[in-house]
Design a protein around this nucleic acid. Structure first.
Length: 558
RNA sequence: UGGGGUAUUGUGUAAUGGUAGCACAAUUGAUUCUGGUUCAAUUUGUCCGGGUUCGAAUCCUGGUACCCCAACCA
């Protein structure tokens, strides 16, 4: 149990909130959700679900109309729902509280705790002081309550230009916590809001609004990330001065992952500069990207559970995410045979027009998944990597004179290698043993390897997209002088294979369907698929000990 | 530099004064009609220095390192 759940459990035991647990997930609709957000909403919805009567609100923190768009609201709703969480009746928008917040602000003005300040942004920075030096009081700090009331009302009416005035809390310009040095509560913004339209000319800042949103909704445990720890005294101040419900804020560390970036700002940059295909690019750690790539919600939730919750920055190895998705997909996805880089094979002693339908197990991890028939014929494809003319010691697959098993079919022996004028291998000739039908030899002889295959006349031609890490560096921020994170983009992160062969059972595959291509990895049908051509995304490869052996071999040679 | 946080194997995370455990990664072996899965095993750790105690990752004390804060972003 993590430290936050421990606190919640204690609070229930002591009856701190009358045993209630009300959490919330408060995204700003200024971008798509990523797996870091998943950590947060799995925590919030998770805690609510684990406690009887608990509930978790989904609230859009839409206080800055210049950054926010309705389409982001849509995507966030879809992503949270897809991840398996439901907010029930509890869908809220900060913008629904704008009137209430305005009243609260007036309350502070009436009590001499807030004032309208005419300093511009640069002047305000000068007056704020530095980390070590205290700030100076604004010359407008001691306006009369009446003048503040009048000015603030006129700010709301839209009388003043953007940036000309703000409403500030009157706290302490010499506080060692810079957030307490008379922070801005309202700024003038003549901007169209995606929900309130042109009703407002002033918008609350996050610091003013956020605590109020939690308070209005009766949140008990307000869970947020570490950087807001410094803001907690300010939220406390607002809530105490207003005398309203005061949730308990608890901070935890953001998720960081190796080989990727996790800030909405950077993701936006990649999208806007067309360095990726969009917010749902399968290489991105966005929920929509991971969905498109073939990740299951279950695997992402399991990942979020395993990484834990803490109070210090840490970077999780992306291998853990990959492990979680393999673990889930191994149990749930049906096996099929697909050849990514085809090499034609002809069996000389197999009848020309013959076709046989072999029994294949759909999922050895799940007997319920049943079996299917896979067509076999004289000409088929195998993986180029499954043949070597001059194999090293540890290579177990097909080679001249060697016998291997074709999965669910026959034992075949390579008898000849056909090459083109350039010496490239273009075809293999084999003989087969009819007695091994189904894949077992009656005499009990063994082969070192079983390889997959796809019958040529029955094959479906498809496109496959292979993905690698988006960045070449574990930490993309680790850059040479004068470069930014984009200089670490991996030019090999997407590899498109347009001439792959898959077994005919895949003809009916629908968008987002997941499969294991035997011996290769997990693949999912991409939204770019057409009636003419199915496109598959590789979600993640299978663990590949042969690749490791090869790598080691290379290292030894070099 | 003022303030607020945090330090446990390569990476993450447990242990709340009593054998430093688990997962991922790595390595080895067994099983296997997927070089997959499964199973078994191995390697590596309490930021540093003092103190209290029979006993300290945990308590005290002094250091060190890292993160956050000087947007009218969230």
């Amino acid at each position: 149990m993590d430290f936050i759940r421990t606190i919640v459990a204690e609070d229930i035991l002591t009856g701190k909130w009358n045993g209630e647990v009300i959490t919330r997930f408060p995204p700003e609709p200024n971008g798509f959700l990523h797996v870091g957000h998943a950590k947060s909403f799995c925590l919030n919805f998770g805690i609510a679900a684990e406690n009887e009567g608990g509930c978790c609100h989904l609230r859009f923190d839409d206080t800055n109309p210049v950054m926010e768009e309705a389409r982001y609201v849509e995507s966030i709703l879809e992503d949270v729902r897809w991840m398996g969480w439901s907010w029930g009746e509890h869908l809220y928008y900060a913008s629904d509280y704008f009137d209430q917040m305005y009243d609260y602000a007036f309350q502070l003005i009436n009590n001499g705790l807030a004032y309208v300040c005419d300093l511009d942004a640069e002047q305000m920075r000068e007056y704020r002081g530095t980390l070590t030096a205290p700030g100076k009081d604004s010359p407008y700090r001691n306006r009369s309550i009446e003048e503040n009331q009048d000015l603030f009302r006129r700010m709301k009416e839209g009388e003043f230009k953007d940036g000309s005035r703000v409403l500030r809390a009157k706290i302490d310009m010499s506080s060692p916590n810079l957030n307490m040095r008379d922070p801005v509560m309202y700024r003038i913004l003549h901007a169209e809001h995606h929900r309130t339209g042109s009703k407002w000319f002033i918008y609350p800042t996050y610091d003013w609004a956020h605590g109020l949103e939690d308070s209005i909704e009766g949140i008990t445990h307000s869970l947020c990330t570490l950087e807001f720890e410094n803001h907690r005294p300010l939220y406390n101040w607002y809530l105490d001065k207003l005398g309203v419900h005061h949730p308990q804020q608890i901070e935890f560390a953001r998720l960081e992952l190796t080989y990727t970036v996790m800030s909405k700002r950077k993701l936006l940059q990649l999208v806007e500069e067309n360095l990726v295909m969009g917010w749902d690019d399968p290489r991105l750690p966005t929920i929509s990207g991971m969905r498109r790539r073939g990740y299951s919600p279950e695997s992402i939730r399991e990942f979020c559970r395993r990484i834990g919750i803490n109070k210090f920055n840490s970077t999780i190895d992306i291998a853990l995410l990959e492990h979680c998705v393999r673990e889930d997909l191994n149990k749930t996805s049906n096996r099929v045979m697909a050849v990514l880089n085809p090499l034609k094979v002809v069996i000389d002693n197999y009848p020309d027009e013959e076709e046989e339908w072999m029994d294949a197990v759909n999922n050895p991890e799940d007997p319920e998944a049943g079996t299917r028939k896979v067509p076999f014929s004289k000409v088929f494809y195998i993986e180029q990597d499954d043949f070597m003319e001059d194999p090293p010691k540890k290579f177990f697959r097909l080679a001249p004179g060697r016998e291997v098993r074709l999965r669910y079919a026959f034992f075949v022996t390579c008898t000849d290698v056909v090459k083109d004028d350039n010496g490239q291998i273009i075809e293999l000739r084999c003989s087969y043993d009819p007695a091994t039908r189904g894949g077992n030899a009656p005499d009990g002889r063994k082969v070192k390897s079983t390889i997959h295959w796809v019958s040529a006349p029955h094959a479906l031609n498809v496109e496959v997209k292979l993905y690698d890490h988006l960045f070449t560096m574990e930490n993309p921020e680790n850059t040479a002088d004068g470069e930014d994170f984009k200089s670490n983009l991996n030019p090999q992160s997407l590899k498109t294979l347009s001439d792959c062969m898959v077994e005919p059972s895949l003809k009916e595959a629908k968008c987002l369907d997941r499969f294991q291509f035997e011996r290769l990895g997990y693949f999912s049908v991409d939204s770019d698929s057409t009636n003419e051509k199915i496109v598959f995304n590789r979600t993640v490869s299978l663990r590949d000990t042969w690749a490791k052996i090869q790598k080691k071999g290379h290292k030894k040679q070099n």
